[in-house]
């Protein structure tokens, strides 16, 4: 034995992972990244493992990324989405999932609108759970792929690196998971956006809070820019997408005013011209598409490492 293992049986959030866990995922992801760049992209690591992707909330890229990761690992995959489910018929989450497990499913990848839903499952069902986003709480694999991308870009030299997360911090599961992950890896984090989109007590996480995007960009080495969705907010926290773009959007002019080059990230999907302009998203400083590639490798690593915790 002696093969390193994760300290957890589920990846419900970054909060539950140790620094060592994160580095183990990075190392494994690095290997899988080489695999998926080979002519034969598939390995038999999860043969005979069945994974259910349960998406109780819409997703395109996270779902595709997980499915691809599972298939590259030779797992058997079933997909389930809320629109075609019995959830609408009044069945509880635990019942729904237990029914699926009795079809002999080993691992569950779940996205759910309620914060804590994967934690509930982890307590009540006999399978490894991977959280693919629980409401406005966590999105651990996104944070892992984000930090992995930074890690690779800086050749592992990430301690002390300054990252600003720009946008709708209040409604973002990406922001919270990012902060946990980055802090565990020794990075400094700032959040930036309209004050109405930054929860009052966020600074108690040990992050800096800034409302001026130009100052935030000047401070950072890396800017992770979040998607803005005014149309989905039930309460209007800021006046308009237009004003957001003008005063909080990251554009070429803002970058040209900086005394240095910074790395540009975005978890997608991008609203071009709102939180980020095309000339920034497509610039040489952007690693947005690398993030997508790393997403598959990181998810392969997470699934692989979790499977190896099975007895």
């Amino acid at each position: 034995m002696g093969k390193p293992q994760l300290s957890v049986n589920h990846v419900t959030g970054i909060k539950e992972l140790s620094r060592e866990d994160i580095f183990l995922i990075f190392e494994t992801a690095n290997e899988f990244k080489q695999v998926i760049n080979r002519p034969i992209k598939k390995v038999p690591s999860l043969r005979d493992i069945t994974i259910a992707n349960l998406f109780f909330e819409d997703s395109t890229r996270t779902k595709l990324s997980f499915e691809l990761a599972e298939k590259r690992l030779s797992a058997d995959v079933i997909n389930f989405s809320a629109s075609s489910s019995s959830v609408k018929k009044g069945e509880t989450l635990i019942d729904t999932v237990n029914n699926i497990l009795y079809m002999k499913v080993d691992m569950i990848v779940m996205r759910h609108p309620s914060p804590g839903a994967p934690h509930l499952l982890a307590k009540h069902v006999n399978a490894n759970i991977v959280n693919a986003g629980d409401g406005t709480h966590e999105h651990p694999t996104q944070a892992l792929l984000d930090t992995f991308s930074i890690y690779q870009h800086f050749n592992g030299e990430i301690k002390g690196k300054k990252v600003v997360i720009v946008g709708d911090i209040m409604h973002s599961r990406v922001a919270l998971s990012n902060i946990y992950a980055m802090q565990k890896l020794g990075m400094e984090v700032m959040v930036c956006g309209p004050s109405t989109l930054i929860p009052k007590y966020f600074h108690e996480l040990g992050v800096l809070v800034e409302n001026n995007v130009q100052k935030a960009l000047e401070w950072c080495d890396v800017a992770n820019i979040l998607r803005i969705q005014l149309e989905r907010q039930q309460i209007r926290y800021f006046p308009s997408l237009r004003e957001y773009a003008m005063y909080f959007g990251v554009n070429r002019q803002r970058l040209d005013n900086l005394s240095k080059n910074i790395l540009i990230m975005h978890p997608g999907p991008i609203n071009r011209g709102i939180e980020i302009t095309s000339d920034v998203a497509d610039s040489e400083h952007s690693i947005i598409l690398e993030q997508v590639e790393n997403g598959v490798a990181v998810r392969m690593a997470v699934l692989y490492l979790l499977a190896s915790t099975r007895k």
């Binding site: 109405t196 209007r236 800021f238 006046p239 308009s240 237009r242 004003e243 003008m246 005063y247």
Partner: peptide, 9 residues
């Protein structure tokens, strides 16, 4: 009294 107007602008 409902939606914030464009104050920055």
């Amino acid at each position: 009294g409902k939606d914030l107007a464009e104050m920055f602008d």
